[in-house]
Simulated scan of single mutants.
Amino acid sequence: MDQTKLKHHTDLKDVREHLIVAYTSVRGDLLHLPNYRVEAFTERLHRHGEDPGWEAVIAYTLDGQPIGYAYANTVEPGNRWWTRMDAPVPAEYTESASLAIKEIGVVPTWRGQGLAQAMHDDLLQHRQEDFVSLLVNPAAGDGKVQRLYEGWGYTRIGSQQPSPESPPLACLGRPVDQTGRR
């Protein structure tokens, strides 16, 4: 972590290429699958970047290479994030605006150093929403990725399949501030 720096961004056009470069490296072994193609990611990124409250945290090496990212946006009650769920989620998530983390990724050679959690925590640090959720493929890393998020305080609140090309995903959620200071 001493060899990296985190930067916040709220305008996609400023960091679009950095996110695509990092994504290509993060998901390199999956790019042959329809939902993981760079074109599919670019389309999602464009759509998410126009959503309210979009914010990204990008990890850079000291020489400026993007090596990880986390980005999210605000989702209001009734948003398709919620309407695609296979069952109703706990009401506190949909009573007011909440935060949806859309992507977290770390370049393989930088994994295992706490970078994903550092970006995640930095992203949540100044958010005004009370609750945050994210989607995870329960099969990713033989369940390791979901267990990682559970270690950050997330619990399963539902599931969905966002597109026909996507695998079924678990929706995990938690309070943004887990210290009770809000």
Score class of each variant (00 low, 15 high):
26 V>P: 05
97 A>H: 09
94 T>A: 13
65 Q>R: 13
148 L>G: 04
113 Q>S: 06
47 R>T: 14
167 P>D: 15
27 R>C: 15
9 H>A: 08
162 P>D: 01
99 L>A: 05
16 R>D: 05
148 L>Q: 09
18 H>T: 13
87 A>L: 09
22 A>P: 00
9 H>S: 10
143 G>E: 07
97 A>W: 08
151 G>S: 10
29 D>I: 09
39 E>K: 13
31 L>T: 13
32 H>I: 01
147 R>L: 09
10 T>A: 03
132 V>E: 08
3 Q>R: 10
27 R>D: 13
162 P>S: 03
65 Q>T: 15
52 P>R: 03
167 P>T: 09
167 P>K: 04
11 D>E: 08
113 Q>P: 01
132 V>H: 08
176 V>P: 06
33 L>K: 08
17 E>R: 06
41 F>P: 15
52 P>L: 04
59 A>H: 10
14 D>S: 10
130 D>L: 03
3 Q>N: 12
71 Y>E: 13
15 V>W: 00
57 V>F: 02
122 D>M: 12
25 S>E: 13
87 A>W: 05
36 Y>K: 12
17 E>N: 14
49 G>Q: 04
150 E>L: 07
79 N>D: 15
70 A>C: 14
3 Q>V: 10
2 D>E: 14
141 G>Q: 14
118 A>E: 07
68 G>T: 07
134 L>M: 11
77 P>D: 03
130 D>A: 07
51 D>L: 12
16 R>E: 11
38 V>F: 12
10 T>I: 04
74 T>G: 14
111 R>L: 00
96 S>T: 09
153 G>F: 00
60 Y>P: 13
34 P>Y: 04
99 L>V: 03
159 S>M: 05
80 R>S: 10
54 W>K: 01
175 P>A: 01
29 D>F: 07
54 W>I: 00
15 V>P: 01
68 G>Y: 07
22 A>H: 00
92 E>P: 00
78 G>I: 06
100 A>P: 06
3 Q>I: 07
119 M>C: 07
41 F>H: 13
114 G>A: 07
177 D>E: 01
178 Q>S: 04
141 G>K: 11
176 V>I: 01
40 A>N: 15
112 G>C: 04
26 V>M: 09
98 S>M: 01
130 D>F: 00
120 H>T: 12
96 S>L: 10
30 L>Y: 14
49 G>W: 05
120 H>N: 11
56 A>L: 09
168 P>R: 05
92 E>A: 00
93 Y>G: 02
15 V>D: 02
157 I>D: 08
162 P>C: 02
79 N>Y: 15
58 I>M: 05
147 R>V: 02
181 R>W: 04
101 I>A: 05
68 G>L: 06
70 A>W: 11
148 L>M: 11
161 Q>D: 04
7 K>C: 08
146 Q>H: 03
166 S>K: 01
122 D>T: 14
161 Q>C: 10
19 L>W: 04
14 D>F: 04
158 G>Y: 00
139 A>F: 15
78 G>V: 06
97 A>G: 08
5 K>T: 06
